[in-house]
Computed example of a mutant assay.
Amino acid sequence: MSDSLQHREQGLSFEITARSGTARVGKLHTAHGVFETPVFMPVGTNANVKLMRVDQLKEIGVQILLGNSYHLAVKPGLDVIKLHRGLHGFMGWNGGILTDSGGFQVFSLKELRQIDDDGVMIKSPVDGSKLFLTPEFSIDIQKTLNSDIVMVLDHCPSPNDSYEEAVRSLKRTQYWAERSLKHGVNSWQLLFAIAQGGVYEDLRRLSAQKLSELPFSGFAIGGLSLGEEFEKTLRLASVTLESLPEEKPRYFMGGGSPELIAHLVEMGVDMFDSVFPTRLARHGAALTFRGRLNIRSARYKNDLKPIEEECDCTVCRNHSRSYIHHLFDRGEVLGGILLTHHNLRFMMRFMQRLRDSIANGTFSEYKKEVIDSYVKGEGDGLCSDIAGDALSR
């Protein structure tokens, strides 16, 4: 099969430009630009990436970010979004936007929702208002948001669900995907389906196979990295990927730690999102190519070095570990702002290195380097909490 595989949907396209085994570099063409894959999308649930301005996101190389249709429909409400002609105008962001359908809230707000085959009634944890989310209404919300990539509403099960419960959620996810496809999106939007199946390999395979029969623009792997063992995450992701179309983009929902991304890129995943780098930053942890640093540690009180000497971000060019340690020690919000900026720039540099290593044939060596850094690296706060990346999305 040619390395320039190309799939066109609604005038938009995905093309694979380089390979290293099953890892690949691609270009995703959307209404707001062409994005290189593998790509990491920072999470902007409420129309903002926490502690970052949109000009800073552009400065550090962010191509596309994620918004949440359920939360935005509740606050500020669709009438406000309409005044700005969509989420891009509301945020002042001219890059790409992928919007989650609200399916993750089916999992995360389990105590506040009632679900059946028609849809899900969710009680807002913000103001107590109720919203009945159907596959069609989720699509309509995302059409109003005018995002570049629209996700179908899915039923995300818990890793603890029984086989019977996982079957029910799989069937509901398939039914909702078919309804979403029939309802349709704006001509310039891409529509992605989401494979589910809980922690059961046969159900994962079945979900991916059934969805692959439908003409979606891309496919996501949902319901993983929710607390299950790391090796199980990888095994279930691999089983799912084996049954998804090779020529279309594949998106792992809620994965953001370097080790997890390196493994999944090797399997052929193209897109990632997670609160992982921003959540770590707000708690005083910095991502580096030598592992993770806990900047709150007293060892950095008099350390004049930047977070990472090779980093080109404005934080590393202008501030010492000592200064950022002081900010956290005094409870200053600027500490979280500076580390968020650095961590997101790290993720952009990390993804670029992954793409370069695939293109120049050194991916296997680079993957080993990443795993060595984040399992036995020089950092002092390594990524022992990789499983569970998605829990705070």
Rank of each mutant, 00 (worst) to 15 (best):
T144N: 07
E111S: 15
L181P: 04
D79L: 15
F219H: 09
G89Y: 04
C316M: 00
A262C: 13
P215G: 00
N46C: 05
S162M: 06
L153Y: 03
F289C: 11
P157C: 09
E136M: 10
I149L: 09
E59G: 09
Y374T: 11
G256L: 09
D273F: 10
G222H: 03
P245S: 05
E247Y: 04
L170P: 03
C316G: 06
S4W: 13
S212K: 07
G291A: 00
S4R: 12
Q196S: 01
G381Y: 15
Y163S: 07
G33Q: 02
M253I: 11
L280Y: 14
N360W: 11
R317E: 12
Y200F: 14
T99G: 00
G361F: 10
M348Y: 11
K367D: 10
L280W: 08
Y70E: 13
G218W: 03
L280I: 13
A177S: 00
I261G: 00
S320L: 03
P125M: 02
M121T: 14
Y300C: 11
L109G: 14
T278W: 03
F289R: 15
K50D: 00
I60W: 07
S20H: 01
E231S: 14
F132M: 06
W93L: 04
S180N: 10
R290V: 12
H263W: 05
G44F: 08
I371Y: 11
W93H: 08
